[in-house]
Design a protein around this nucleic acid. Sequence first.
DNA 1: CAGCATCCAACGAGATACTG
DNA 2: CAGTATCTCGTTGGATGCTG
Lengths: 110, 110
Amino acid sequence: MDEPITLSKGTPGTECAIAKSLDTISNKWTFLIVRDLLLDGTVRFGELQRSLDGISAKTLTLRLRELEEKGIVSRQVYPEIPPRVEYSLTDKGKQLEPLFIELKRFGMTL
Amino acid sequence: MDEPITLSKGTPGTECAIAKSLDTISNKWTFLIVRDLLLDGTVRFGELQRSLDGISAKTLTLRLRELEEKGIVSRQVYPEIPPRVEYSLTDKGKQLEPLFIELKRFGMTL
DNA sequence: CAGCATCCAACGAGATACTG
DNA sequence: CAGTATCTCGTTGGATGCTG
């Protein structure tokens, strides 16, 4: 597995790697949620919502649950009044950082 | 511009770089179309459609037109019978390659 | 505060039929 | 061959109101 990573579609097993990435994060809000978590580490629901500017609570909840299921995000509930819930990236989620660097690099060339 | 690229949302002007990338390619088929063009260089409409397996002609046309407008893809029409149209990436489009390498790398960890 | 339930609008995309 | 036109459908997401 030390071979350089190149694009390809022929090799069985690796041919859908890109598709798998896409299934995980190819959603407008999902990208931005992960970016915020990369930048800020641990964030409360409300902070996330304000930071994302425009997202509805429903959508944010849905995307976070999805990311949780996929093991990208972890959810920590504090049984307090008023309730507090904090989100952060799992180790798997943190592996997305290089992808975001590239995403930003390309965006800056536009 | 030699400074290392890091994620950030504070810096005005660069704060939406990721969002701009996403506006450009955050679509299920768009990603896969660009990947095919990266791999195959110059491709005809029909080849692209067969290669993408499942995309309808309508959707393929729409996405290609979109990419053309954004300067990612160039379209070359040969006035022949039967008609031949070839698509390839522009220089700007080719700058997407590192992003796809990362996309694949991450997908392989899943 | 952090949600869930409901309703509704917009968009992406498939199927099908047709054309230069 | 490389589209275009039309219809339909499923999903995404915003708005609003309610709750522990």
